[in-house]
């Protein structure tokens, strides 16, 4: 005979939040984060590591190899820096983007469509904003870990030209936050794996053309405008300013760009999760 499961009339702490967030947020994202950390035990560390090494391979092949031929490059602020030091911050921004996007798109898509994870979560006292914030934080964490590792590699290779390089870490977290929230928002609207390919379709050219490997000045004005609208360029410029020490006022604009991206992403994600699971 088994014991009765009711141990004591315990009532869990209840959210009595009111106002517009009352039905959206229970202030318990940490439960979602805790779940994610526990679940990483079952993920393949090979995949995680590959995301870390990808930008390092680029840095070694292009920065060191190609850099020997290219020599020095002039940044958007007019500073002349070695080629490897020019592309390294860009690759740092890219690694943050990749980590955040991988977690917030493929992983989220799977959890939403197949594992029915969010359906289960939203049947509890969690609100959609708890889920969105928790999942985005996890994506951000992965982006942050990649970035910290890459920054160390840069330091070892002597590619951090100023003390402000340390600020690249929070900057990269901001960038990752932006990509993760927008990525999750977009993913929540997608219905099939085919549509997921669109994300790759946008990310690859963005990676190649966002002043990653050469200054934006090589482009005609029209293309330049397109690049400047897309998010990665803002990330690249922000991080490059910090690691090369060429601080400028437009960097505040880049920060603002990501703040807006975060707000827009979170708004749409929350709204969409609510529509999908709490309609």
């Amino acid at each position: 005979m088994t014991a009765a499961p009711m141990l004591a009339p315990v009532r869990p702490a209840q959210s009595r939040r009111t106002g517009p967030l009352g039905s959206l947020y229970a202030g318990n994202s940490r439960a979602v984060i805790g779940r994610g950390l526990l679940a990483t035990r079952s993920t393949s560390w090979l995949i995680v590591l590959s995301g870390f090494f990808e930008p390092i391979f680029y840095l070694l092949s292009l920065g060191i190899g190609l850099g020997a031929i290219v020599g020095a490059v002039t940044t958007s602020t007019g500073q002349s820096v070695p080629y490897a030091a020019y592309i390294a911050p860009a690759l740092l921004a890219v690694s943050a983007m990749n980590g955040a996007i991988f977690d917030s798109t493929w992983n989220v898509f799977f959890k939403m469509q197949y594992a029915k994870l969010y359906e289960g979560m939203l049947a509890t006292s969690l609100g959609p904003l708890d889920v969105a914030l928790g999942e985005i934080f996890l994506a951000l964490l992965r982006g942050g870990v990649y970035a910290a590792g890459f920054l160390i590699v840069m330091q070892v290779l002597g590619l951090n030209l100023a003390w402000t390089a340390i600020l690249a870490l929070p900057a990269v977290l901001l960038i990752a936050f932006g990509f993760a929230s927008l990525g999750m928002a977009i993913t929540s609207y997608l219905k099939s794996f085919q549509q997921m390919d669109w994300i790759t379709f946008v990310m690859l050219p963005m990676f190649l053309f966002s002043a990653t490997f050469y200054p934006l000045s090589v482009y005609p004005q029209a293309i330049r405008v397109v690049i400047e609208i897309l998010p990665l360029w803002h990330g690249v410029e922000l991080v490059r300013g910090l690691t090369t020490g060429a601080l400028s006022l437009p960097m505040l604009g880049h920060v603002l760009y990501f703040v807006v991206m975060i707000v827009v992403g979170l708004t749409f994600t929350t709204r969409r999760l609510r529509a999908l699971f709490l309609n």
Partner: peptide, 9 residues
């Protein structure tokens, strides 16, 4: 355990 945590326990 994780499910209980969703309820803030």
């Amino acid at each position: 355990i994780v499910y209980g945590r969703y309820f803030g326990m």
